[in-house]
Nucleic acid binder design. Structure first.
Length: 453
RNA sequence: UCCGGCAUAGCUCAGCGGUAGAGCGGGUGACUGUUAAUCACUAGGUCGUAGGUUCGAAUCCUACUGCCGGAGCCA
């Protein structure tokens, strides 16, 4: 039976018969034997195999080059060399699939740009293997966080006809012939349909039935964005809570960020060490800091005051009532507080129709969690639960009430104060790995002009 | 979409007006309980594409394409 390399490394004692299957990372030949380093992706470290000349399969050793897949039978024994506790003294090796000299991954480091061009092979590199193992752990942690708190996981639709206004441009879904716009009424769904930009509106309906829910799934934005933190297809986590106000919403968001950081610190130590060495030297320290210290929290108005008093020269002027620019958010979280920051109560003019209007009638109960290096990682709000106020907001945003009839029904029948937020899964992953580009934390990233693989 | 930068060997880059270079990787050989091994030899390039300037262009100019970074939009 196959043993994963990860388990071989953790062995308490020698093992007489062990089978390892994986890919050759490197081979070093000696006169009478060879060292093979085998990696199977179960952990960062490969396992060293000693192949004596003459054992069954050793005649193929020359073909067991970097990239080849092999099967090794042997004894797990204490290593004579430095750098590993255990190694395998092979009794038999088998070349499963050769890789010739055109195999593009070298033993040395490659640039992320080059590795993106071979996205089908890059998970075989140390860094990307670590990133995608961490991605899996982080996804699991998301579920654990919400399940432990009695949230119900809801699968909101990927194809939708509702536009969560303010969330961005949408991809059209159609079966109409190419090149013809046609009448939406004659299209597959009898109306214009799109890939979802947010499950929030549908999420609200379930929160108003099951109390606390979350969604976790793919989201699509057709924005022509060319930045290190935007992708056309990404995963988003969207909790929604009934009988909940903005303050509890912010509390949960902060707890959520802390939980995920803590989980990764505990469960992905080896991979984090690699990120700390090659990607971001301060990573461990920063995650530790986030877990231990409370987030700073202030209103939009206070944030603007801080920015105005900072004496800092910004490219874009800080103006009351205007959106905070990226550079402003960065100053708040990276320089002024040097920790995650939650900004809340934004001017209502710059926020979408569904956010709850505060008593001052000037601001809405919206909040953003900003983290150093990434910027906005969470955006959320308390939702407008008062039918008349919501209708007035929709009128101001020039939205058609009829298209949102079911959304308005939530306010007609047993309306409750409720709140939620959206957390960008990849942005969270960037934050915990220190990886700077969103294209390097998605297995096959979709960005404008790029859908290879 | 806007602003800026880059494009030379499989990879990372040097060369910046006068006959295409290095390191790594590959191949061959030697050597060694090695671990991004070491040493020697060796193969490998229409210098992103198309124009232009010049006696002569990888090098200067223009356009295009691609990539990267920043902005906006946001997660």
């Amino acid at each position: 039976m196959r043993t994963l390399v990860k388990h071989a490394h953790r062995s308490e004692s020698e093992v007489d018969n062990i089978l390892i299957q994986g890919w050759v990372r490197t081979r070093r030949d000696s006169k009478s034997f060879s060292f093979l380093e085998i990696n199977d992706g179960s952990c960062l470290k490969g396992i060293q195999v000693i192949v004596d000349a003459g054992i069954p399969g050793s005649e193929q050793i020359a073909l067991m080059a970097t990239g080849a897949s092999v099967e090794v039978n042997g004894r797990l024994v204490a290593s004579q060399g430095k750098g590993q506790k255990w190694e395998i003294q092979a009794t038999e090796v088998k070349l499963v699939g050769a890789a010739d000299e055109t195999y593009p991954l070298q033993k040395k480091g490659h640039t992320p740009e080059f590795l993106r061009s071979i996205a089908h092979l890059r998970p075989r590199s140390n860094l990307y293997g670590s990133v995608f193992r961490t991605r899996s752990k982080l996804a699991y942690a998301v579920h654990q966080f919400f399940q432990e708190r009695d949230f119900v996981y809801v699968h909101t639709p990927i194809i939708t006809a509702s536009d969560c206004e303010g969330a961005g441009e949408m991809f059209r879904v159609t079966t109409l012939p190419q090149g013809k716009d046609g009448d939406p009424a004659s299209d597959f769904f009898g109306k214009s349909a799109y890939l979802t930009v947010s499950g929030q509106l549908e999420g609200e309906t379930f929160a108003c039935a099951l109390s606390n829910i979350y969604t976790f799934g793919p989201t699509f934005r057709a924005e022509n964005s060319h930045t290190a933190r935007h992708a056309s297809e990404f995963w988003m986590i969207e909790p929604e809570m009934a009988f909940c106000n903005l303050e509890a919403d912010m509390d949960l968001a902060e707890e959520n960020v802390k939980f995920l950081c803590k989980y990764v610190l505990e469960e992905c130590a080896d991979d984090l060490e690699l990120f700390g060495k090659f990607v971001d030297k301060q990573l461990h320290e920063r995650l530790q800091f986030v877990v231990e210290r409370p987030f700073q929290r202030f209103t939009y108005a206070e944030a603007v005051e801080i920015l105005l008093k900072s004496g800092k020269k910004f490219e874009y002027e800080v103006v009351h009532g205007h959106n905070l620019q990226s550079e402003h958010e960065r100053y708040l979280t990276e320089e002024h507080c040097k920790c995650p920051v939650t900004v809340y109560n934004y001017p209502k003019a710059i926020k979408p129709f569904y956010m709850r209007v505060n008593d001052d009638d000037a601001t809405v109960a919206a909040m953003d969690v900003l983290v150093p290096g990434i910027g906005e990682i969470v955006g959320g709000s308390q939702r407008e639960e008062r039918l008349d106020v919501l209708k007035a907001n929709m009128a101001k945003h020039e939205l058609d009430e009829e298209a949102y009839w079911w959304y308005l029904d939530l306010r007609r029948y047993g309306s409750v104060p409720h709140a939620g937020y959206g957390m960008g899964f990849e942005r969270m992953l960037m934050f915990v790995t220190g990886v700077h580009n969103i294209r390097d934390v998605i297995p096959f990233a979709r960005t404008p002009g790029n859908a290879e693989f």
